[in-house]
Write a protein that binds this DNA or RNA. Structure first.
Lengths: 202, 202
DNA sequence: CGGTCGAGACGAGACGGTTCGTCTCGCTGA
DNA sequence: TCAGCGAGACGAACCGTCTCGTCTCGACCG
């Protein structure tokens, strides 16, 4: 479904070319921004024929997305959240790290370009969900489930809602440039979510 | 700063052309989507020279953004939130309406395209903040302030945080297609925010 | 075994098509 | 009279497709 109609043979793929293309794409998107980036420039920088890019990727967005993934993907392949037993502490750790990443100017340009592409290309959005977002949300939800069973969240707390209450505001503030993305803000969000979904104080 | 370097004289501007351009842009972005939309097509549909578009707008995104604004701007010019005295009820009303709009397929395409443009063009983001987002956030914050003074929120509730807790999750869910944007979800978000920042139950 | 051969990915770049943004044209209206 | 107007010519940039000749690799055969 995702592959081309006349499928090329992945086993014959040239790994050097693939790596060179992703590296070139990552460099160029940082230098030029996504809008001024072209397939031809990627090919030239990578020392690669255009067709080699068109053969393996359906769009410019897909190339940049893969480059981003290759750079950010955990080599160990496993994505985990800390579990010290204290939900608040663990969430603060995660959200502080997230805020730190979003606040990094180097990440900002690439991240915004990628977000814009992902939001307007349904196929890319599916990829993004499957390979990055859903794993993160799942892992977060599982941590919350553990906490709920330990009585650190209400028994009827909606975990999907909780996850969106955690990440939504950060994301909203980041994309719109509404305010500083610092550890204090991360702590505020965590405190609010715990206040809303934590055990009732009776 | 926003204007061209050799400023044209706004007083000599042709209002018919301006309106025709915005109408054509709105129609075409709905028909073709933002990506396949071109300045030349807008000019042709509007019966206008390309230069007339380039003279008054810096980018394709800016034209579409203006078209969107012209169509959605409240004619009375005033943006207000309901104030029945019951904060929960008022917030549910607003968030339900917001969710309804985001869930509208007709809005979805245009909204995503516009969001993508706004996020990657700092000048457009500034425009968006000034003309749409900040007024909405301000009006929401003022409603929350009233409620706080009436004792419906904690005395130390951070209103900036509150606003982002309200809109952030909706926005997050919408952009990523995480789940249904229905009145029930709006109610859940409001309940969570009131749970977090409402008066302590002592 | 070791040599031959065909398939398919590769680098390079020509190609026609599209859109870009700039630049003239006269024309028109304040 | 003068700046904005519709129209469209213009060169530049990229698009995505295609066609070269090269190379690598597995299959097959002597």
């Amino acid at each position: 479904m995702t592959g081309p109609q006349t499928a090329p043979d992945p086993s014959r793929r040239n790994e050097q070319s693939r790596a060179a293309i992703l590296t070139a794409a990552a460099e160029l998107v940082a230098e030029l921004g996504f809008g001024k980036l072209t397939i031809e420039k990627i090919a030239a920088r990578a020392g690669v024929g255009k067709q080699t890019i068109y053969r393996w990727w359906p769009s410019k967005g897909a190339v940049v997305f893969d480059a981003f993934l290759a750079a950010s993907e955990n080599p160990s392949g496993s994505l985990t959240l800390p579990d010290t037993g204290d939900l608040g502490e663990d969430l603060r750790t995660v959200l502080r790290l997230t805020a730190l990443e979003l606040a990094d100017p180097a990440f900002d340009r690439t991240g915004r370009a990628l977000t814009a592409e992902v939001l307007t290309d349904p196929a890319l959005l599916r990829d993004y969900r499957e390979r990055l977002l859903d794993p993160l949300l799942t892992v977060t939800r599982e941590r919350l489930r553990t906490a709920r069973e330990a009585g650190q969240l209400r028994a009827d707390a909606d975990l999907d809602l909780a996850v969106e209450l955690l990440y939504g505001p950060l994301y909203y503030r980041w994309l719109h440039g509404l305010g500083p993305l610092d550890p204090g803000y991360a702590d505020q969000v965590v405190a609010a979510v715990l206040g809303a979904l934590g055990p009732t104080r009776d």
